[in-house]
Amino acid sequence: MDCVICRCEEVLLSDIVRAIEDGYTSHREIKLKTRAGMGICQGRTCRLLLDQVIASVSQGPVPKTIGIAPNVPIRPIMLGDLAKGGGKAK
């Protein structure tokens, strides 16, 4: 039975399986292809699930990706808050 995997971007298990079968095999490729992990939670909820799907479809070990690119901001903050540190040099 099909099931939502990425809740933010409404990506289904079948979407991910299809992408893997089409040759998009890594975490990043699946993200770029299906948008899984691109939403407001940035993969916090689906990251580990994606690893499991990859392992299952490719019949390999669960990829032990940390899945955490050191990507700031680590929390979604308002652009206005981010702007407060700017403009010093001007």
């Binding site: 099931c3 916090r44 909820t45 580990l48 699930l49 700031v72 929390r75 903050i77 808050d81 540190g85």
Partner: peptide
């Protein structure tokens, strides 16, 4: 770096952010 842009500098940091739940997706 925090929301609201308050500046905190510290000589030492302790990251004690705990754990999150691993979901089990069910239709």
């Amino acid at each position: 770096k925090m929301s609201g842009h308050e500046d905190i500098t510290a000589s030492y940091v302790i990251v004690a952010t705990g754990a999150q739940e691993n979901p089990t997706p069910v239709p």
